[in-house]
């Protein structure tokens, strides 16, 4: 079971969180004209990366905040976690 550092609550076990997918995907702005391909990429197309991956988790049974987790998908190593609004360099 992973041990995830919630930036709001501290180290917590994985079973307090729910997984939310790729955190690098950005929703197209409302009312913006975009191509079918761009929309498809947003809704469906995800890379299944092996290695470092930025992903979303929600601290569901805790503070209910969505957070970003930088995790290695092969080794499960977690490098860093960020608040939702935090800029990632």
């Amino acid at each position: 079971m992973l041990h995830i550092k919630c930036p709001h609550c501290g180290m917590r076990s994985q079973n307090e969180f729910s997984y939310g997918g790729d955190a690098s995907v950005k929703r197209p702005e409302l009312n913006k004209e975009i191509t079918d391909e761009e929309w498809d990429n947003f809704v469906y197309n995800r890379k299944s990366l092996r290695g470092k991956h930025l992903e979303l988790w929600q601290h569901l049974s805790g503070c209910r905040q969505w957070i970003k987790v930088e995790r290695d998908t092969a080794t499960h190593e977690i490098f860093n976690t960020y608040k939702a609004e935090e800029e990632i360099s």
Partner: peptide, 13 residues
């Protein structure tokens, strides 16, 4: 609820 929180916290903060 999670769906609403997702949009408020991540998409339209």
């Amino acid at each position: 609820l999670s769906h609403l929180e997702y949009y408020l916290q991540l998409v339209w903060p």
